[in-house]
């Protein structure tokens, strides 16, 4: 261990070596130039492109999100408007239907009333007419009955006698 310390201090570790410096410089510069051409160029451009691509993707995604949010908002507004519209239409329809129903029922009632009254009148008329007819019929029947009664009670011999007596009367009276 002592020796290593002596060697270190003697400077073999720190001794300059121009040959090695020369080769290091040459090697490093050549490697730098070649790598710059074959590796760093493509890699760095690819990285930058990807970075830009990612950035633009993010931007696009944000834009798309904003747009979709705007569309959503618009849709919601439209939906709300449509809802209100449909509500209004339904309400109007209901009102109209209500009115219509009231009108119709009123009209129907009036109609019915009218029909009832006219029916009553007709019934009355019919009744009257029926009574007239009945009365005529009854009179006819009575006349026919009477006729039948009369015809049955009317005997030709009796009648001849009656007529003969009458003629006799008349002749006696003239005489």
């Amino acid at each position: 261990m002592l020796t290593s310390g002596i060697i270190l201090l003697a400077g073999s570790l720190l001794s300059p070596n121009p040959g090695l410096i020369f080769w290091t410089a040459i090697t490093f510069v050549i490697v730098l130039l070649i790598l710059k051409k074959i590796a760093w160029g493509p890699i760095l451009t690819a990285l930058e492109e990807r970075e830009k691509g990612i950035q633009s993707s993010i931007d696009r995604a944000h834009k798309a999100k904003d747009e979709s949010e705007a569309i959503l908002r618009k849709n919601k507004e439209l939906l709300a408007k449509a809802d209100a519209e449909s509500d209004r239409i339904i309400r109007e329809g209901k009102d109209f239907a209500e009115k219509l129903r009231a009108d119709i029922s009123q009209k129907a009632q009036a109609e019915a009333q009218k029909m009832i009254t006219s029916a009553k009148e007709e019934i009355e008329q019919e009744k009257r007419r029926a009574l007239d007819v009945l009365r005529n019929e009854v009179a006819d029947l009575a006349v026919r009955g009477a006729e039948k009664i009369i015809r049955t009670t009317l005997d030709a011999d009796i009648q001849k006698r009656i007529v003969d007596s009458m003629i006799k009367d008349i002749s006696t009276n003239r005489n």
């Binding site: 121009p18 040959g19 090697t27 490697v31 074959i38 760093w40 160029g41 890699i43």
Partner: peptide
């Protein structure tokens, strides 16, 4: 004295390795 020493050989090995690795990687990119 620009002799090829052990460390020069190592430098060249390193350079060769670097060139191989990064020509492959660069080619992919």
């Amino acid at each position: 004295d620009i002799s090829i020493t052990k460390h020069v050989v190592m430098l060249w090995l390193v350079s060769a390795l670097l060139l191989i690795v990064f020509s492959v990687v660069g080619g992919k990119y």
